[in-house]
Design a protein around this nucleic acid. Structure first.
Lengths: 363, 363
DNA sequence: CTGTTAGCGCATTCAC
DNA sequence: GTGAATGCGCTAACAG
């Protein structure tokens, strides 16, 4: 026994007792060829029920489970889907304790759907703003050879990423993108969501409804603003002074809040393009003793745990992140399966959740 | 071209242009044997610097990245670590929008450390309370053949899990467990943390310090209670009526709060064994118009995003979850490497973060 | 419907 | 210090 084996044994406290059960053992046990076992495992055709059952019995008896690496090497699929996210903001969210609802919801939707199909989702972080990004992605693709890749904003619209995926022949889904282009696009209707928020506030009697935009790098920001603008026009309420620029982050919303507070006739309601920005507005209101929702209504464009648990809990647009990821996984797996009953350009419904941060206009 | 290939091509929009670069191509390019390339890639010995550089140049030129599946199949390692979590509570946390700070911090610590070593962390959910649990774990082990497994509470103390890991010869780390036993144990000092909370409150003049326990299934709950008890005794403040039972969940803390409020001389401060329970106490206080921290101080035993963002933000014990996971990954990889400068039974420091929910006792 | 053959890309073992 | 042979566990292509 070599050194490493000894060390491993020491750390596991016992010699290997369970030696690997392979397809070979199953074949011997069932008295069939390797290929037949493979067929049964993969639900292939051309196996008589009798043989199938005999093989399945052998599988169960021996406790056989196929080895992913071998399947990948021999066959044409890896049973792996890769979810790509931007490293810097993702890590920052975790590290600074802000949480990362988008990631959590992706895991929820992606992992469960993958599991249903015998797939696994591997979560991969890349440095989007580095020139090494393409290399990092190529390395991950070469190492893992995933059967599909799930892209999230802002990668969604990134041409370099689409290009390398294309060159590698890997199907991919772009979450949160309604643009035409390569890859499956799966999104929600951001404009409609913004309009819904406006309608809700207008119904409560608000005339001065402020809007804090998201980062311009995100197409969704543009859509949200357009939806807001359209709805405000429809109600005859639009005023450019009611729009302040933000970047999804807390600090930018503090700034935006101050801008909006300083105008001639300040808003009695504010729609913030992210959860963090909505929380910033709430914090500012608290600081200035502005009661919410009595003197100021707030709508958040994310329905994160902190948004739900704030005081008061915020009225929010609940984006179907888990649903989009789940659908993406489903579709990518279908492509590998050679089926494709689902078409690209999917739009999933959002939910508008009314909570304590919006109320009748009293001024 | 078969059906599936055509479908994939349609969905990727282009034929494969980048065909796989293997070690073979690199060997040809560098004019050496496969084996030499393998040595260079794995930083093996017995390669002259000249040859090494020639190979590295070829690798860079061709854009070669090793294929994980092939490495695993040919060699003795998978470059995979598996993090095991309980499905039901994990999914519930995501689904109900409560968030899942433990998971987030694990990802932070585990993924980054794995990445540093060319490893990947695969996140796996198992049904701990099902009789299929062992089969699920065996299936995951057989499929992935991870080089190590990271266990979290309450799996940490589960004998069936340790047993199957042992039988598969897979090294593992138990997070949040200070007990002796198989596998590496990495934990924090829960008792000391509870004592620190008591000391903090006692210094603020509190005499009636309540404690809400966590679920008994978790060893940490016992430790926390013991630490509380010890510190209270030390200050001469212990009273069994000040301890109420909880199970980490919101509802249980509402109940516990009512119990504590009903005693002869109710607590002026409460230590809750989880973030959710602390938030429940805060919500109850708000509901009953009990000002925090003026009339009631609150300490949380988790430092989650919602705990930080509440009003007021809660004083909390920050557990080193990312650090524990990172250390676990580091140690497991070292075992595979045949090195082991680190020993089992690691205790990592926690942080006690004072925020707005604790203040001087005024009664 | 079933079995045989070949090979995926790499690390390991042994020659040289 | 380097190269050649062997096989990991499985699926694909073909033969029967």
């Amino acid at each position: 026994m070599n050194n490493r084996a000894a060390l491993e044994e020491r750390h596991t406290g016992a010699p290997r007792t369970r030696q690997t059960v392979t397809i070979k053992h199953v074949a011997a046990e069932a008295g069939v060829s390797l290929q037949t076992v493979s067929r049964v495992i993969n639900n292939g055709p051309n196996v008589t029920p009798v043989v199938r059952e005999r093989v399945q019995a052998a599988v169960a008896k021996l406790g056989y489970f196929p080895n992913l690496a071998a399947r990948r090497l021999g066959g044409s699929r890896s049973y792996l889907l890769m979810a790509l996210n931007d490293r810097e903001p993702t890590v920052a969210g975790w590290r600074e304790g802000r949480g990362n609802d988008w990631i959590d919801q992706m895991l929820l939707g992606g992992m469960l759907t993958c599991a249903e199909h015998g797939y696994r989702m591997i979560f991969e972080l890349v440095d989007s703003h580095s020139d090494k990004m393409v290399d990092q992605i190529q390395a991950a693709l070469s190492a893992l050879r995933p059967d599909g890749v799930i892209l999230t904003p802002p990668h969604t619209e990134n041409a370099a990423i689409a290009d390398i995926l294309l060159r590698n022949g890997v199907p991919f889904a772009r979450l949160g993108s309604r643009t035409e282009g390569e890859g499956l696009s799966i999104a929600m209707n951001d404009a409609l969501a913004a309009a819904t928020a406006v309608d809700h506030l207008a119904e409560l009697g608000h005339k001065r409804i402020g809007f804090i935009t998201g980062s311009r790098d995100y197409l969704a920001s543009i859509d949200r603003l357009a939806g807001y603008r359209g709805a405000m026009d429809r109600h005859g309420l639009f005023d450019p002074a009611l729009v302040a620029e933000g970047d999804f982050g807390y600090a930018s919303a503090v700034q935006a809040f101050e801008t909006l507070s300083a105008i001639q006739s300040p808003p009695t309601a504010i729609i913030a393009s992210s959860g963090e920005m909505a929380l910033a507005v709430l914090a500012m209101a608290r600081k200035l003793d502005i009661p919410v929702p009595e003197a100021l209504s707030i709508v958040s464009f994310d329905d994160t745990p902190t948004v739900r648990m704030s005081a008061p809990p915020l009225t929010a647009i609940h984006q179907p992140i888990a649903g989009m990821t789940s659908l993406a996984a489903e579709m990518l797996i279908q492509i590998k399966d050679g089926r494709s009953d689902l078409s690209s350009g999917q739009i999933l419904p959002f939910e508008f959740v009314v909570r304590g941060s919006t109320g009748p206009c009293r001024s």
